[in-house]
């Protein structure tokens, strides 16, 4: 099923060069090193207000409970597993920004300003006790936050072969 690449020309010439005007609006992704973070900033105090208005209906007041799951670490009921949330399971803080920006609120994705996303990120990190409530989150401060779960994450070590892993 694999094409004989010897017979391929170097280039076919199909497609058009992509300009910055085409790339920039789509290029919203944020990496752990902060690449992709926009200008602007936010605080937990502002985030709390936005969260109550736009998020709590689905994720519970203060990010606990709600029909679409908690976002904040809680002590599990006896005999229950700990819920995997930002505070105990997410290895990078930048992912919070990236994901909210692209996908939340679920019913109006892409509707938040950069300031709102910074503030919501600050709010959720604060609620998870990972950020001081007075801190200002921006492109410089966000990538510096070290998440408790980061040390737990290991890349796939499974190998082809008989071992069960």
């Amino acid at each position: 099923g694999v094409l004989n690449t010897d017979s391929l020309p170097t280039r076919f010439g199909y497609g058009k060069p992509a300009s910055a005007v085409q790339i920039t609006p789509l290029d919203i992704d944020v990496r752990p090193d902060g690449q992709g973070l926009p200008a602007g900033s936010g605080t937990a105090t502002t985030g709390a207000v936005i969260f109550a208005a736009k998020c709590a209906a689905c994720h519970g007041a203060g990010g606990v409970g709600g029909p679409n799951g908690s976002l904040v670490t809680t002590t599990p009921a006896p005999g229950k597993r700990t819920e995997k949330v930002i505070g105990n399971y997410w290895p990078y803080a930048t992912t919070v920004f990236d994901y909210i920006q692209r996908a939340m609120p679920f019913s109006q994705p892409g509707s938040l300003t950069n300031e709102e996303v910074y503030s919501l990120t600050a709010y959720l990190l604060t609620a998870n006790k990972l950020l001081d409530e007075k801190a200002v989150l921006n492109a410089q401060t966000l990538p510096k936050i070290v998440m408790p779960a980061q040390k737990l994450f290991v890349p796939d070590d499974r190998k082809a072969g008989p071992e069960i892993h």
Partner: peptide, 13 residues
């Protein structure tokens, strides 16, 4: 195309 994973929500959480 980049030189490190993005650590998106779908490959972490």
């Amino acid at each position: 195309l980049g030189d490190a994973p993005w650590q998106t929500r779908e490959e972490t959480s």
